[in-house]
């Protein structure tokens, strides 16, 4: 009879057969094959005789005794860990936002580039602006020649009696601003060096003749160039 299983296959199945862990089909196949290999038959007998004594030992109950309280101790340790983690988490949950807010507040009040400081400086600089857009009504005709319709110009202008400010149509106003800004420079005596500095002039305080002189000083001869 030709064995179904090789020597190696029977060898590999031998321990499981000896300990009763082969299924019925494999067991029948094993039993049919092992009789052909006397060395393995002898091995099987030795294993049976020795391990029959070993298997009297109830390793399961030994382990059961050793491990009976592990689940309780694990739960206790987990509870302790969770409590500790919660405390740490709560602490950090309060500390981190507080530190963040403190840092932001510090930044707002101390940094030169902070938005808070830029708003403050902007408001300070805004108060120093003094617009040069003041021309007496009577000078309008002398400034502008026939190229500009004087009547229309005057009709469009608004005279603010309280502060003597005249608002010209946008074309004229812009040209006038550019003219004055490009040419007007007044040297200041209080400067420490000889450099002349550009200075804003408040024309509110000038009378008509002073403004006329100012325009003459600018060598304004041909208004048509406007």
């Amino acid at each position: 009879m030709t064995p179904i299983l090789t020597h190696k296959q029977v060898e590999e199945m031998l321990p499981d057969y000896a300990f009763g862990r082969l299924n019925a089909e494999d067991s029948i196949e094993f039993e049919r094959s092992i009789s052909v290999y006397p060395d393995l038959s002898q091995e099987l007998q030795d294993i049976h005789s020795v391990f029959s004594k070993v298997e009297q030992m109830d390793f399961n109950s030994i382990l059961e005794n050793r491990t009976r309280n592990i689940s309780v101790r694990v739960r206790e340790r987990l509870a302790v860990n969770n409590t500790r983690n919660n405390t740490i988490f709560k602490t950090f949950r309060l500390i981190i936002p507080t530190l963040g807010l403190a840092a932001m507040a510090l930044f707002f009040f101390t940094s030169e580039n902070s938005p808070f400081n830029s708003i403050r400086s902007k408001s300070l600089s805004t108060t120093n602006i003094r617009p040069i857009q003041v021309v007496s009504t009577s000078d309008v005709a002398s400034i502008f020649s026939d190229d500009i319709n004087e009547g229309a110009l005057l009709a469009e202008s608004r005279v603010h009696q309280n502060n003597s400010v005249i608002a010209f149509p946008s074309q004229v106003s812009t040209t006038l601003d550019e003219l004055i800004a490009d040419n007007l420079s007044i040297s200041t005596d209080d400067s420490d060096n000889d450099n002349t500095t550009q200075k804003d002039i408040n024309l509110d305080n000038l009378n008509d003749s002073e403004i006329q002189n100012l325009l003459n000083e600018l060598n304004y001869e041909n208004p048509s160039n406007l």
Binding site: L14, P15, A18, E43, D46, I47, S49, V50, F51, K53, V54
Partner: peptide, 10 residues
Amino acid sequence: AVQKLAKLLK
């Protein structure tokens, strides 16, 4: 392993 254990125990 089983073979060796069997011999050692025997």
